[in-house]
Design a protein around this nucleic acid. Structure first.
Lengths: 149, 149
DNA sequence: CTTATTGCAAATACTTTGCACCAGC
DNA sequence: GCTGGTGCAAAGTATTTGCAATAAG
């Protein structure tokens, strides 16, 4: 029987303190469907919480990432992008479809049966073969979107 | 009937010139199994070709990437990494297994049947559903490797 | 009261740009 | 010879770090 924990329990459980900045940043991530950069997050909160600096945003994201509360993505850009992990966000697990021309990113959630089947089998196979404790995966397809064709 | 072209034909075909720097950089990429960063490449050539600067390496990689001769990867690092694309390199297409602790990257080539089957079907399905012209994919699993467990 | 957390400024790391010169074709 | 390619130095951008002040538990 596993207790269902919120992000605050997870943070305190890992020895981190609950602070305004952390609360606000999680709130921002909860209220978007986008993959936000550190600066996006900073800009969003800055009106209402001008006392929270960009450095804190970076440091908070690092903490939230290390505890598994947010996922971090490196698309083919310079900056990293973040979103709440499946466990804590409203967003279900998804894969990406990236346009290499306009950089638009489409999230898709509606997996085909083959996709689910594949992941299960291959995760198991790889874990065994390479003696890895696999925690997750990142799948993205790239190409040219309808607008850019 | 499509003519099979080497990288030099591809470059000139796209209106780029053949230069020493481009030749040497491709040579470096051919002689490694690793995913090299721009600086890795620069360091490797620097002994023998001290007249080629880091800037040129960056600019060349940009050209080679834009023409599809090299693939560019953003792992969970600050720097980008490069390798010859399947068409021009000796390395077959592969997926990645990344240790989130020590950052070790394992390439795996030995796909299970499910993996190949999956990719074919899902690529087709997504192309149609999202009206994308899909050129490729990037698949990585992450977790803890045997050493770090 | 103890120690993690923060803001600011400065530092870092990687990458890009401006410009004058050089080299493919 | 025309135009793209290059080296160098300088600028740019995302991110990290040092440090003294502050706040969480």
């Amino acid at each position: 029987l596993r207790k269902r924990c919120g992000w605050s329990e997870k943070l305190t459980g890992c020895g981190f303190r609950l602070t305004k900045a952390r609360e606000v940043i999680i709130e921002v991530l909860k209220n978007t469907k986008e993959h936000l950069s550190a600066e996006d997050i900073y800009m969003t909160m800055h009106q209402e919480y001008p006392e929270i600096g960009l450095t804190t945003v970076y440091r908070t994201l690092e903490v939230l990432h290390s505890t598994g509360i947010v996922d971090k993505f490196d698309f083919d850009e310079r900056r990293a992008r973040f979103e709440l992990s499946e466990e804590f966000g409203s967003k279900k697990h998804h894969h990406h479809l990236i346009c290499t021309k306009c950089q638009k990113i489409v999230d898709y959630f509606d997996f085909m049966d083959e996709e689910i089947n594949y992941l299960e089998i291959v995760t198991k196979g790889l874990s065994k073969k390479y003696d890895f404790n696999i925690k997750g995966h990142l799948i993205s397809f790239h190409g040219i979107c309808s607008n850019c064709k």
